[in-house]
Structures are given as structure tokens and as C-alpha cells.
Amino acid sequence: MVYVALITGFLLILMGLYGALTNRNILRMTVAFSIASTGTHLVLVAVGYIPGRTAPILDGAVTAADASLRIIDPVPQALVLTAIVIGLGVTALMLTYAYKLYETKRTLDISKYTDLKW
């Protein structure tokens, strides 16, 4: 199962980057970036998984005494939680700039924006 999650995550990263590199529409590029970031989250969570263990939450089933033998690694989960929240911020910024670009030239085609091209 870990390998399935890892392979899916890597495939999503590759597909997202391919979409971001080949699409012309700025909004489509943003969609592709968000898919790539989902793939990254999947890879990171899969790396922290240990087969046969439970979530890092202590309750009646998992007591504090045997926690280190029963739970999976909490650090990648905390990391991915941060990454998802920041990912929304990054997406919001990309969308804002896309709208601002659209307002100046009335097009979303990235190849029309040649001002900084040399």
C-alpha cells in the first residue's frame, strides 16, 4: 500500500509538472501546480507510514506507555498539514496575479506576455 501511494504521488507530480510546462492558459497552469502539490503531500505522508500501525492519537486503544510501538511517525503529518495550508495561500496568490495580468491585457494566454522576454 505504501508503494501504491508513493507511485501515485510521483505520477501526480510528473503529470502536474508536465501540465504546467506545456499549457498556455495561466489558469490551467495553476490547476496543474495544485495537482503536483497534492502528489507531493501524498509522497510525504506515505514516507511516514509504517505497516500495521495506527494514527498518532492516544486513546483507550493506544496508551501512552506503548505509544512508540503502536503509532506511526507524526512528524511528516505535521509537515504536510503545514504544506496544505501554505499551498492554498500560494494558489490564491497565483490566481490573484493571473487576474491582474488578465486585467492588463485581456487574455490568459501566457505566450502573449512578452514584456520581460529577451
Binding site: V2, A5, T8, V45, G48, Y49, A55, I57, V85, G87
Partner: peptide, 19 residues
Amino acid sequence: VMFVLLAAPDVAMTEAAIG
């Protein structure tokens, strides 16, 4: 849903609500 299978309910909630 995959995060739930990977025993990460916190991440699953975040991804469903935000992502």
C-alpha cells in the same frame, strides 16, 4: 481518502476542507 488509509486523519481533514 488515501490519507485516511495511510493512518493520517489530521491530514485527511485538512486536505478535504482546504484542498
